[in-house]
Structures are given as C-alpha cells and as structure tokens.
Design a protein around this nucleic acid. Structure first.
Lengths: 144, 144
DNA sequence: GTACTTTTGATGACATATCAACTATAATTG
DNA sequence: CAATTATAGTTGATATGTCATCAAAAGTAC
C-alpha cells in the first residue's frame, strides 16, 4: 500500500489529538473546570436557544448517548439546568445558568489564543485549502 | 474570533472521525473482530519484534494506560500472547499468535481499500501539502 | 554494596465514543 | 379514534483516553 496514504491518516489523527491535548492543557492552566467538548455543547445551546439534544449532537458531531452524558455532567457542574419543555413532554429545555454563562465567556479568549497558536505561520490560503481537502475526505467517507 | 479558524478545527475533527467510522464499518462488514487501533498495535509489534509497550504507545501515539488495556484485549482475543522477557523482569515479550497473524493479513486489503476510497480524487500533491500543513499544527502545539 | 533515580507496566476512577435496546410521547395513517 | 410509525432522550455494556498513583525491577551514583 502507498506509504504516504497511511502516514497521512496517522498525521491527521496526531494533529487533532495534539491540538486537543494542547487546548485542554491551556483551559486547565486557566483554572477553568470544563472540557473543550463540554464548552462546544454549551456554546451550541447558547447560540440556538430551544435547541433539541438531537440537534446539539448533529451540530457538534457526536453520538446521542455521548451528548446525553455530557449534558448530565454539565447539569452536575451547575452550568446547565434542565426544565420541562412547554409543549413537548419528550423534550427538555436546556437553560444555561449564570455560572455556565460565566464559564463560556471565560473560556473564549483561551480558545482564541489556542487556535492562534495552533495556526501560527499558516496562511489563510493554506487554511482554506486544507479545509477543502478535509471536506473531500468527509464526502468520500459518507455512508451511501 | 476568526470563524475560519474555528471551522477548520471542527472540520479536522469531523474528517478523522468520519474516516475512522467509515473504516471501522468496512472492517466489521468484512466480519473481522478487530478495531483499527488494535490492528495498529498488532502491526507495531509485527514490524518491531521485541518492542516495549512504551515504544508501542509512542509509535501509535497513545496513552500508556490505553495501550496496556488494548494489549489485554488482544490477549483475550487470542491475537497476542504475553511471555516473560528473557532478561528484564519488568517487561513482557509480546508474541503475535497464528490467529493474530491471520487477522493482520486479512485486514490489510480492507484498510488499503478504505484509504483509497477516503482519498478519492485527491492528488499526491494535495496529500503531500496537507501532510505538511498538519505537521505544522503538531509542531505549533507541542509542549515547550 | 547501598541508596537513589529511572523505567516498565498495571490499576483505579472518571470522561467520552459506540452500539443496541428501551420508554414515553408526538405525529401520521387509515 | 385506534393503530402504527417516528421522535426525543436514556441506559447498559464495552472500548478507549486521561490523569494520577503504584509496585517491581533495572540503572546510576557515590
């Protein structure tokens, strides 16, 4: 098999893993009790009030079961509250608490700095090209 | 913050996740009882006889604890055997069983096909450029 | 030769991912 | 209106990732 192919997927894996570890380290250093993914979930809820958990899962590209568990943890951390939905008893309203709002805001500059550092010396054109390339992989791997 | 930056990391994450899910589906379809990562671990042992678990962890870019657990599962699946190391009682010899050898061989064409499909319509130059880009991210995110 | 440091690998506890199965509720069909 | 189908979310079991801690054994320093 082509060595380059195999090395590419390994590098893809390593790059996102390295970025996530780096990003999480910075968040921990800032003394904030949240993971990157939890923040993404909270951000999703903030950006789309009245969002369903299914929709959150799609937005952040995660399994329904994982999202349920993450929401459970966010409730436990008091960043989120579950309320009964007004009209649909299958659903919950997910309300970001004041504590949750504060955490979202506190993390934003850390994440901005993380991304800036991660993309140091990479041009907008290179970033755009890379995105197009990755989207092609996503397209190629979709189930029929 | 730059929207493009944020979208890039999301796309990076989504692309590797989509690839892994696709690749695992193909392995399952082929009726082979192994995960991509388990295969990588086995392959590492095959390529470097007498390798230590620490070295395996570095090769496949995984946590020591994760590698220990994966090896435990590979032993349980009878793809691997642990033997006492000849000269160093802290270590084990990891022996690939016949069953393990067979599985490694059986998976290779599936993985080759997976990669080929994932990289459909992407040129060698694009692949090479992407690798260089991703390696820059890895470099940027390394601990000091 | 002893004390100290480093290495090797395991384990516990917790978080997340995956797959499958489940319950309750809403929507649709005839 | 009742039966059926679809949706929303949960839960169990298992695999992997992370962090911290541990014990045993090898290596190093004096």
């Amino acid at each position: 098999m082509e060595k380059l192919d195999q090395v590419l997927f390994f590098t893809l894996e390593k790059s996102i893993k390295t970025y996530r570890q780096f990003a999480q380290r910075q968040i921990d250093k800032a003394g904030i009790d949240i993971t990157i993914d939890q923040w993404l979930v909270l951000k999703s809820i903030q950006d789309w009030p009245d969002i369903s958990q299914h929709q959150i899962a799609e937005n952040v590209f995660k399994d329904f079961a994982s999202v349920t568990r993450m929401i459970e943890l966010l409730v436990k951390k008091e960043y989120l509250q579950r309320e009964f939905h007004k009209t649909d008893r299958r659903r919950f309203n997910l309300i970001i608490t004041k504590k949750g709002q504060a955490v979202i805001q506190k993390v934003i500059p850390v994440i901005t700095a993380n991304r800036k550092q991660a993309l140091k010396s990479l041009t907008k054109a290179e970033i755009e090209n890379n995105k197009v390339f990755l989207n092609q992989i996503i397209e190629n791997c979709k189930p029929e």
